[in-house]
């Protein structure tokens, strides 16, 4: 009993210290997550995984649209994280525009709830994200009574910004994680053509549907984007087909770049086959925002989605 009491005391004490480190980080992934869940009020929000975080440059979006923008993307994430971010943001305000980056093979596998465990340090202070995190395991709610468990394995990334700044992007980058350098391998890789279609995972699909319907209910202009990969030409996949269907059903534009040869055959735009480098991200964001801009401008005059005609690119 004494051991358990001592452990419980140290757990609380350690938790307080870790909360402090989280809340005062100069930058880094926890600072970004905290900003997303607690502070951001930007007009435009980008949601996605690593390609969301790396490929979209908020400054370019801001300059082009004349609206403020925050990139809430986070590497290694998927639909559960998108749901948590959505809940966190909608609990405070309604952004005007949300750009949702979806990978061409997203929605095919079982949603990786455990990846959203990255948000565990916010579990106690953000009841709105608890339903998502509770799906990691049936006793997650119990485990999260431990403050140390909430920070399990996070120490490296929690402490790193105090010593090395900007590795996950500077605060002035507004959530964007610029990746310098150019890919110097797989340059002779033959262009990979359409892989066989894999059926969508019903749970992932259901999660996606919730994301869409919740934004729709709140009148958010939602844009779906499938960003490019080097050496892979994917014009159609189960996820893309479903995005097209959703896009047509609700009038949310879809932009498919995964078969765009001005990207997928240009290694100089990539830092690795799945992520654009700084030049690539800037070119991609300018290109994308040029296409989105007319919709955003027209929506200023029209309040209902139904009045507009959307084109699937």
């Amino acid at each position: 009993m004494l051991v358990l009491a001592l452990f419980a005391g140290l757990d609380r004490l350690g938790g307080l210290l870790l909360d402090y480190l989280r809340d005062h980080a100069p930058d880094g992934r926890y600072q970004k997550a905290k900003y997303t869940l607690e502070e951001c009020t930007e007009d435009v929000v980008v949601i996605g995984s690593s390609r969301g975080e790396i490929n979209y440059v908020p400054r370019i979006i801001e300059d082009s649209l004349g609206m403020s923008c925050w990139n809430a993307g986070r590497g290694g994430q998927g639909m559960p994280f998108f749901r948590a971010v959505q809940e966190g943001i909608l609990a405070r305000y309604t952004p005007k525009v949300v750009i949702l980056n979806i990978d061409d093979n997203d929605l095919e596998g079982v949603p990786a709830y455990e990846h959203a465990g990255f948000l565990r340090p916010f579990y106690n202070t953000h009841p709105e994200i608890r339903p998502v995190l509770n799906k990691i395991s049936k006793f997650e709610w119990l485990l999260l009574q431990s403050r140390l468990y909430a920070y399990n394995s996070s120490y490296y990334y929690l402490i790193r910004p105090y010593f090395i700044g900007g590795l996950d992007g500077k605060t002035s980058d507004k959530g964007w994680k610029p990746r310098p350098g150019t890919m110097d391998y797989l340059l002779d890789k033959p262009l990979e053509q359409e892989p066989p279609k894999v059926p969508l995972n019903p749970e992932a699909k259901a999660q996606f549907d919730v994301v869409v319907s919740k934004f729709r209910e709140r009148g958010v202009q939602l844009y779906f984007v499938v960003s490019p990969n080097y050496g892979r030409s994917i014009a159609s996949s189960s996820a893309i087909d479903y995005l097209k269907k959703t896009s047509e059903a609700f009038g949310f534009p879809l932009f498919v770049y995964s078969s765009d040869t001005s990207y997928i055959t240009h290694p100089e735009l990539y830092v690795d086959p799945e992520h654009l480098n700084i030049d690539g991200a800037q070119k991609f964001t300018k290109d994308l925002i040029g296409k989105i801009k007319p919709y955003v401008q027209s929506s200023i005059q029209h309040t209902s989605h139904d009045e507009k005609v959307y084109k699937v690119y």
Binding site: V3, L10, D11, I136, L143
Partner: peptide, 17 residues
């Protein structure tokens, strides 16, 4: 020793089943 081990397990163990 026991408390430190418990803290280490909770902090750095992998618990994803």
């Amino acid at each position: 020793t026991i408390v430190i081990m418990l803290i280490y397990i909770v902090s750095l163990g992998v618990f994803d089943g």
